[in-house]
Simulated assay, not measured.
Amino acid sequence: MSTITTPFGFSSTAAEVAKGIDLTGRRAVVTGASSGLGAETARVLAGTGASVTLAVRDMAAGERVAKDITASTGNRDVQVAHLDLADPQSVTAFTTAWEGPLHVLVNNAGVMASPEQYTEQGWEWQFATNHLGHFALATGLHDALSADGNARIVAVSSTGHQQSPIVWDDVNFAFRPYDPWLAYGQSKTANVLFAVEATRRWAGDNITANALMPGATYTNLQRHTGGRGSGRVPAELIKTVEQGAAISVLLATSPLLEGIGGRYFVDCNETDTVDRRTGTLHGVARYAVDADNARRLWDLSESLLTQAI
């Protein structure tokens, strides 16, 4: 299995990656598209001619972004729909209301290093939002993705996945002290494992899924970590929102990714598999692309969601 490389890299922007791409007649959903990377991803996808749905919690913010996207791209086929990933009923309402095929699903929304919090079902908040909500969304939209005949799922993960594998015996921090970064890491590992198993499980439906690290960008994601003043990443490694969204757009649109799934990308190229934390933004932990782990997480996720209904 050869490593995927592209002409793009650290400094590439979403607009540069999408240049020449025509998705007229195709449909895309971007979660968390009311600001930051999601908004830029949605804007560039709309620029390709796609019909784009912004799946957001804050409808007013979503409407503002949709209006701006239409003004900047000329694409009037931009919708806003409510979606709260931490609420299974909200996810079900979204998927039930969807009609017709879906070409691209960008699982972009997320929370990072948030204070200890649990859903009504007892799920740790970051695992519930970053993984379980997106898992329920993708499985709920499976028929729509399958109907497209060549659909793609983009899972926005993070180098933070190197902080923690899935802790199978205590996913929800019931028996260990809560650590916001370990919880974040576990949820981001789950994003990668989802891409691995979705690609395997849905190969017959011509659905592929890939995961990515967008790079260090300053968005609302950092509201719990001190934002620009946190100093966690050297200034030279900080990307603009336009650069950070490039890799999501690449995985969603590029002919170079045709039929490719279950991979993890950094700076618009597939990265190496590693057995120890790298201390950099590169590398995907072996446990995050392990096929057995991916199947186990899928089964666990189905079980948790079934219990919630």
Rank of each mutant, 00 (worst) to 15 (best):
S146D: 02
L137F: 10
S158D: 08
S157G: 08
G140N: 08
A147T: 03
G160L: 10
G133P: 09
L145C: 06
G149L: 12
D148Y: 05
P101Y: 08
N130D: 14
G149D: 13
V167H: 14
I153T: 08
E116H: 10
N130L: 02
R152W: 03
H103C: 03
Q126S: 13
V156R: 02
F135Y: 13
P165W: 04
V106K: 05
A155Y: 00
H103W: 10
L137G: 09
V156Y: 04
Q121C: 03
A136D: 04
L145N: 04
F135N: 07
V167E: 13
T139Q: 14
S158M: 11
A109C: 08
S158F: 07
G160C: 10
T129Y: 06
D148K: 06
Q121M: 15
S146W: 00
E116T: 05
G122L: 09
G160N: 11
T159A: 14
A144C: 06
V106A: 13
P115L: 05
E124F: 04
I153M: 09
Q121V: 07
A144E: 00
I166F: 01
R152G: 02
L137K: 11
D169P: 02
H134A: 06
Q126R: 07
H103I: 01
F127N: 02
E120Q: 14
A136T: 01
W125N: 00
Q117Y: 05
W123N: 05
Q162V: 02
G160W: 06
L137I: 15
A128N: 02
V156E: 05
L105Y: 07
L105V: 10
G122Y: 08
W123M: 06
R152N: 11
W168G: 13
V167K: 13
W123Q: 01
H103V: 04
H161W: 04
N130R: 09
H161E: 12
A113L: 10
P115Y: 07
Q117V: 03
A128I: 02
W123H: 13
H161A: 12
G149M: 15
I153G: 01
A128K: 01
A138W: 01
T139Y: 06
A136I: 01
V106Y: 00
Q126F: 06
A147V: 03
T159W: 08
G133Q: 05
N108I: 07
V106M: 09
Q126P: 01
T139V: 15
L132S: 09
G133Y: 01
Q117I: 01
S114V: 10
A151W: 04
